[in-house]
């Protein structure tokens, strides 16, 4: 059995190449972030920093200086916006996903497919009308505008993912609960909700990451530096400190850490969330 299979060797080589392709940019980000500005701007480049330094990180993360203050504010804003829109999205999506999974009310399919179709529409289509709406509501330059608009992608996605999870919970459990004396709603709250918590966590993380990384709406709706989120804040950094590549790379790294960490810890759920629905045997 253990003979040398050319397919296997080819696969290993391909995988190794792909891993290098995936990792090199990130490795270079990390290496650059550990250099001084002077060391970064050399040709040919220093492959490894001669005098590695954490000065960029301490600059960004210490509230004592203006750069750090600004950066931490963006970080905090991003956390708040992502958290709030995730919670809001999940709270609204859970009952809807449950209803789509379990009930057969008239119009169910029509509604559900329009939820799916949302995934087709580019953010830009929504940008202008939402901008007008936010102006009308007086929400331009507020984080409420972002929290609300993030629902445009967060909600349909959450409904779709959660429906997949609910589909996998045997309907007999609720039937048993209803026979045991629970109302439909009690069966949902007391039996189904606790069972679907892994699904809810996975969905929440997914929409958190989406919100954390969102750029277009933040770029358009907010131009007050006090309220910017990280992705736009990063861009602002770039314009302000154009040649500070180590600083920019350090900021990119810090920005990536939470999502990559969340993702790696919960990889199993995440993969399931992404592929749920698309792969039905």
């Amino acid at each position: 059995m253990k003979r040398r299979d050319p397919w296997r060797i080819g696969g290993a080589v391909f995988l190794a190449g792909l891993t290098i392709f995936a990792l090199l940019p990130m490795a270079w980000m990390l290496i650059t972030s550990l250099k001084t500005q002077f060391a970064a701007l050399q040709y040919p480049p220093q492959w490894l920093p001669k005098n590695p330094t954490l000065e960029q990180y301490s600059l960004l993360l210490s509230p004592g200086n203006p750069v750090g203050q600004e950066f931490l504010r963006y970080l905090f804003n991003s956390l708040w916006v992502s958290f709030a829109s995730t919670v809001l999205g999940v709270v609204v999506a859970v009952p809807a996903a449950y209803a789509f999974s379990r009930f057969r009310f008239p119009g169910r399919n029509l509604l559900f497919y329009s939820v799916l179709l949302r995934n087709m529409f580019p953010a830009v289509v929504f940008l202008m009308p939402l901008f007008i709406m936010m102006r009308w509501l007086g929400l331009v330059n507020t984080q409420a505008s972002l929290i609300l608009t993030y629902l445009t992608f967060g909600l349909p996605l959450s409904i779709w993912l959660l429906k997949g999870f609910y589909d996998n919970i045997p309907v007999q459990l609720e039937q048993a609960a209803r026979i045991d004396g629970a109302s439909r709603f009690q069966a949902f709250i007391l039996i189904v909700m606790p069972l679907s918590s892994p699904g809810i966590i996975a969905t929440a993380i997914y929409s958190f990451i989406m919100a954390w990384n969102e750029y277009v709406y933040a770029l358009t709706f907010i131009n007050n530096a006090e309220r910017l989120t990280l992705p736009v804040g990063l861009q602002r950094f770039f314009t302000e400190y154009a040649t500070n590549w180590p600083g920019l790379m350090a900021a990119s790294f810090i920005m990536s850490v939470p999502v990559v960490a969340l993702f790696l810890v919960l990889q199993k759920y995440f993969v399931r969330a992404l592929t749920e629905g698309a792969v039905k045997s």
Binding site: A22, M26, N213, V260
Partner: peptide, 13 residues
Amino acid sequence: GILLIPYVISAVA
């Protein structure tokens, strides 16, 4: 996990 990282990090970064 490693191969998935590019997908999860921010497009801006």
